[in-house]
Amino acid sequence: MDIWWSLHLRREPASVPLARRILLGTMATAGVDPEVSYEVGVALTEACANAVEHAAPGSAGTEDDGFQVTATIVGDRLRIEVTDSGPGFALRLRRDRAAEGRAAEGRAAESKAGRTAPRRSAVVTADTSAESGRGLFLIRALADHVQFRNHPRRGAVVSFDKVLTYQDRPLARAS
């Protein structure tokens, strides 16, 4: 049995646990292994929290655009897509690149002054002391395939896939 649903949610913190509960209920009903469900639930929570934080609010006097969550289970594969109405990833990438460029200039200046800066690792890791910025790393760690892209009109799209394992298939027996 294939399952598909889509939610259009307000850009408010209460929407995050609502989306997670609906996803977990769907997976429990389908008989998905609870450990896999937990991992996907965390990934969805992070994607929704990013949408709530980064999506643009409606302009003065207009309704909030909110964000959309779509989930599809086909056989043993789950696909989640969270779309927001924010500035998209390009703006965030430009900010990150600018900060990285300033850091590189600082290292070059230290090197000229005879001080050596520690070499950066080629592996990108989340700053564990930061109050934000770990969500996309968690999604990458918990999902099998992840894609971050900009929506053609406006906003960011986070989509991820997970291969599901089942403990029992009550829906398959019912059909």
Rank of each mutant, 00 (worst) to 15 (best):
V40F: 01
D127Q: 08
V36D: 01
P118M: 06
R173N: 10
E12N: 14
E35I: 10
D33V: 03
F89I: 12
A103G: 10
E53Q: 08
S132D: 06
D161N: 06
L18G: 07
A56P: 00
G31C: 03
P87D: 14
E100C: 06
T62C: 12
R154G: 06
A99L: 08
D64P: 03
Y166E: 05
V16L: 04
G114Y: 07
T70D: 04
L18N: 04
T116P: 02
P34Y: 06
R153A: 07
S59P: 14
A126H: 09
A30R: 07
G61E: 03
L93F: 12
R119E: 04
R11Q: 11
V123S: 07
T72Y: 14
I22P: 01
A113H: 08
P152E: 14
A51G: 02
R169C: 15
E100Y: 12
N150M: 01
G61H: 12
I3N: 06
A126V: 12
Y38K: 13
V74T: 08
P57S: 08
I80E: 00
E53P: 00
R107F: 12
L44S: 05
F148M: 07
L78N: 01
L138I: 03
E131M: 08
H54K: 11
W4M: 03
R21S: 06
P57T: 10
R11Y: 11
C48D: 11
D76L: 10
V124R: 14
